[in-house]
Design a protein around this nucleic acid. Structure first.
Lengths: 138, 138
DNA sequence: TCGACGATGACGTCGCGTCAAGGTAA
DNA sequence: ATTACCTTGACGCGACGTCATCGTCG
């Protein structure tokens, strides 16, 4: 039986994270009745490593929790796992595209600003760099 | 003088967002003393459009607030604006790289799983798809 | 006795969205 | 009287991190 920080150590994570996963229901330790300490089994280390692998594949904790729940009922979680990954891939593709657009906008702005002077704010303008750049889109 | 939703309409945003920006100090409306309603000036529409342009350039609301603060003191916010954008560009580059790595991991996993059957969970395994994939890294 | 560990609970991150309970305007 | 608007305040998101205050272990 392992305490929070023992489990954290063998799993290369932090006690705070172990407590957080426990709060979210991903780990269900027993309790030492005399002092209330959480007590984990050796198999929880495997569970934790499963969790971090799934996170590396882009799964959210809520999704991992579902997967673990299905597995605990003896049902194969594999079809669900495939679906989640499909969904995450298309979501991520969209997010990537908009981040790339942002990056291009930012780099283009810096380039444009290269030869522009700084200005002093007046009633009409806050920062002409940003304002001039915004007119590109109109 | 404009109410929240009037300002929201001319600025193509929502009343909730206007109230949020106000709460964050980005807008400082007067108040109608008789009913407490927020009252914005026409120039706040320009301020709001400045805010959304800056957001499109990757600025956070906190940063925009700083920029507006400098401008209000008559100081040129332009040098700060250049620095922030530089910083944001390198941060974004790192984020992009890790998202691309994630995307590659996810796509590789789906490919590998294509010819693998679903499994039933036992004591040693939750979902062999995820577990088999994790072994790639060891 | 002391320092490292444990517990719970609450609050911070970011940019809003949403909900409730009520007052106001036309 | 109805409906659309306004107010404040609180809570939700995701995945923890951190802090306070306290009890426990070796």
């Amino acid at each position: 039986m392992l305490t929070v920080s023992e489990l954290a150590r063998v799993s290369e994570t932090t006690p705070d994270t172990v407590r957080y996963y426990t709060r979210m229901g991903l780990l269900q330790p027993e309790r030492n009745e005399s002092n209330g300490y959480r007590l984990y089994q050796q198999t929880d280390a495997g569970r934790l490593s499963f969790i971090s692998q799934a996170k590396k594949l882009g799964f959210t904790l809520a999704e991992i929790n579902e997967v673990l729940g299905h597995a605990a009922h003896g049902q194969s979680p594999c079809p669900m796992v495939r679906e989640i990954l499909q969904r995450r891939i298309s979501e991520n593709r969209k997010a990537l595209e908009s981040m790339i657009l942002l990056q291009e906008r930012m780099e283009q702005a810096l380039l444009q600003w290269h030869d522009m002077p700084d200005g002093t704010p007046d009633g009409h303008s806050v920062c002409h760099l940003i304002e001039s750049f915004s007119k590109e889109f109109e």
